[in-house]
Computed example of a mutant assay.
Amino acid sequence: MTDIPRAPRAATSRRNMLFGTAAAGAALLAAGCTSNENNDEGKESAGAEVADSKPGKKVTIGFAGPQADHGWLNAITTQAKNRAKKYQDVTLEATEGSNDNATQVGQVETLINKKVDVLVVLPADGKALTQVGLKAMRAGIPVVNLDRIFSSQQAYRCWIGGDNYGMGLNAGHYIGEQLKDKKNAKVVELAGIDSLELTRERTKGFDDALKNYPNIKKVARQAAEFTVESGQKKMSELLQAQKKFDALWNHDDDQGVGAERAIKQAGRDEFLMVGGAGSKRVMQAIKDDDSVIKATVLYPPTMAASAIDLARALGQGKGIAGMAEYEIPAHVTLYSAVVTKKNVDEYLPIGFT
């Protein structure tokens, strides 16, 4: 790729800047978006401004997400609100969450009409809210698309979210390493909602990881619905069908509450269990080490706090620390760390309830 002379930033209109941004995604760990302690020298030499915690240009951020009817979604809203409070120069306009697409579209349109500086949107359905994302971008309001992605990249300036494939991959590798010396090991999977692409990505990552362990066979899979009730029902079915296995991967710690009830009712403890998402309850169980739960794979709700950081940087026309670019990246994919007894104390503070 050849070098292209850079046009002066002041000559670029806000609307053209939004739609002219390079589409290539940058996968990185979204930590330290607001700190420039480690890269001041590089930033100064590049001429880029870096968003930091010092008060700057005032920014009004509109936030719209689904109804907080799930532990992880509740944590998303909490993370966004708490992060915004840390900045003297940020005003957060948050809507009341809704799982109804038409209602959420109306909420985002209200924020557009209020002329917020930046929008952070976690859509109940990415495809259904794509048009309102496009409307905001065309109005000159940059959109930070959180987790559930819009169907057009023109509908957002930056996407930040979890790595569903990586979540399954890391769960599979952890289980594989625990069972690599066991002959004819058997594992089962308690998935989420099968109609969601994220569930299919998690399963694919899990299956791909297990291919590295020829001694391990996945003998059963049930799809639940990310609820306690469905987790208990589907786990009961797995336990009845499989009289003995060595490991269970559960995609979601909230539905895991029901799964654990079924396990206790069945009196089974011959296997290890790996959770998904990273609830505080599961992390505490890992630390106590008195149940089948030995690990959980993160899908960090801290992404909402990082989305506020990115929105603030956008509103102030700045880049982020640790990168030489003038602008924030187009895509930020978070890492799905595996939490075990060895590192649980490090991650407990970000566990959600």
Results as ranks from 00 to 15, higher is better:
A31T: 09
L29I: 10
K180G: 10
D40W: 05
S336N: 12
K233N: 13
G25R: 04
L28I: 15
D269M: 09
E260S: 12
G97K: 02
G231V: 08
D3H: 08
V187I: 14
D100F: 10
R268C: 06
G317S: 09
A223Y: 12
I308H: 12
Q265M: 06
S98I: 14
R83P: 00
E229Q: 12
I160Y: 05
G192M: 07
A324D: 08
A124R: 14
N250V: 06
K294F: 08
D181L: 11
A223T: 14
T199C: 15
L239W: 02
A136Y: 00
T34Q: 02
I320F: 00
G32V: 14
L169N: 10
C158D: 01
G275W: 01
Q255T: 03
G176S: 06
R15N: 07
L310E: 01
I141R: 03
L239E: 10
K243P: 03
A7G: 02
F206I: 04
D181T: 09
N101S: 13
A241M: 12
A295E: 00
Q67G: 14
G315R: 01
T333C: 14
G172E: 04
K342Y: 09
P214Y: 05
G267N: 07
A94N: 06
K244Q: 14
L348A: 14
S230C: 07
G56W: 04
V105R: 11
I320P: 00
L298H: 00
T103N: 08
V108K: 11
A51E: 02
Q265W: 08
C158V: 11
